[in-house]
Amino acid sequence: MTAISMPAGSTPARQHSSLDSSMSKARLFRAYLTEAKYETVRMLRTPAFAIPFLGLPALLYLLFGVVIFGAAIRNDAQAGLFIFAAFALFGVMGPGMFGFGMLVANEREHGLLTLKRALPMPSPAYLVAKLLMAIMFAVIVMATMLAVLPLGHIKLSAGQLFAAAAVSILGALPFCAIGLFIGVLTTSRSAPAFVNIIYQVMMHVSGLFYPLPKFLRTIAPVWPTYHLQQLFFSVIGMPSQGSASTHIAVLVVLTLVLTFLAVRRLALKG
């Protein structure tokens, strides 16, 4: 039996008064930051998550935008921008949808969320951390996309590039909300299927990758991907449909409504 000694000055519960339970703003901020840091670290350490989400967008852009259609794009700048938009938005959708959808379902089911609710974790920190993780992934995706962009003979001003990055990164938010909503309604087994179906359908029938036939075009505004794509087009000087304020309003309302419903259900049922 090993004898243990208490580290000096580190005795649990020593001389605590009930007033000690208040947290300084600095420590509270640190709690949020630590939660976000470890959420990001753990996803970066999950190759099945990190490699496809971080690597694929730029690789697919290189494949389609440079290798396969590179010659054609020299004569059709808009086609190049279309492919650039497609893979940038594809890149920022995934981490939010899968990160929230699958992790929340899994953590609800396997006790981690329960433990965090019992511990004095500031309750918004759980979602804020995942949100910051998804944004961090979106930032990395956009950085890789911007890095390979010169190979695709696309000419955008610094202002347009900045605006495109901002739209993409903030555009991750509605997909986080969709993922969260799926995550609170499904089990860890069914979540991957639900997330995948919605992810695939949303990409393919919203016109993200190719122009749609007319009957699908009329219902495309149902999908958040459509609104994000149109916003992206408008900031990089492509012809776009609808007004930017409508697209923003749709995305904001969708994000808020799904987040509200999901958070309420999490609070009631865990």
Binding site: D20, S21, S22, H110, G111, L112, A118, P120, P122
Partner: peptide, 15 residues
Amino acid sequence: VETRRQIGVMMQEVA
């Protein structure tokens, strides 16, 4: 949350 800052928890089943 202020109340829970005075407790520590070890649960039976947690992943």
